[in-house]
Amino acid sequence: MVTLATSRGYRIFQAVNAVILTGVVVVTLYPFVNIVARSFSEESYIASGQVNLIPRGFNLTTYQIVASDPMFWTNYRNTVVYTVVATLISIVLTTCYAYVLSKKHLRGRKTLVAIALFTMFFSGGLIPNYVLVTSLGLKDSIWAIVLPNAINVFNLLVMKAFFEGLPVELEEAAAIDGLSTYGILLRIVLPLSKAVIATMVLFYAVSYWNSWFAAFLYMNESELFPVTVYLRNLIAGATTSENAGAVAGDLTQAAANIQSVTIVLTLIPILVVYPFVQRFFVSGVMLGAVKG
């Protein structure tokens, strides 16, 4: 009797569980569907609150308006350039330091680890960073975005854990064959580390692609903005009149619509690559959590 009762209870639970999880999926996806529906709808339907899941008065006019703004594409290109350059620099620095930290015999290794770890728990804060970047003359340049966040300590620990797991024998053999440390790193270690490097590239690339605050803080010329700042100026213009973006300009009557379109256009690259790269993220986080 007992087993029957529990199994019935369990079946009910399974059904409830399925409903809850379906709810999670719906709640997660609904905002996206709504935004896409708005982006293709006619302004009058949106303004009267009639657009929900499917576009009303289907049209591509707003897409044409957004696409014809040269600044949008300039900023989009900036995002690509910033992401590529910053990711490259981050990867080189993180790999070098992680490799050094993975060498257990190295004198002073613990200090080098501590230098990185401490910054996870205590940081200088916004104002001293702002003062520093300003006084280094990095404002209005790509370096204000790239340099202050070049190494992410979490990523560093993931890579360090990976390097520590590589067989020592390979490197020893290479050393006996007369390879220098640089040679070992380039010809032995890196070819074995393609998977973790790919994961790190994704971690850094996504965070740079999504970042907006550094650019918002340090850049004054709109030609230098990444597309995230373009979008932020657009949405800020809708809520506070004081910040009314020059971007919306004379098209304010279609502001909501333009926002939807811009959101969709900035979302697309992430949505396209997401299904393929998601598992790298999961495995990367696991590696960091287990070993870090």
Binding site: P31, F32, N34, I35, R38, W209, N210, S211, W212, T228, V229, L231, R232, L234, I235, A238, T239, A256, Q259, S260, T262, I263, T266, L267, I270
Partner: peptide
């Protein structure tokens, strides 16, 4: 997603 997109979606 960028936090800007999240904020934009929230506002919409």
């Amino acid at each position: 997603l960028s936090i800007v997109i999240v904020a934009g979606v929230t506002m919409q």
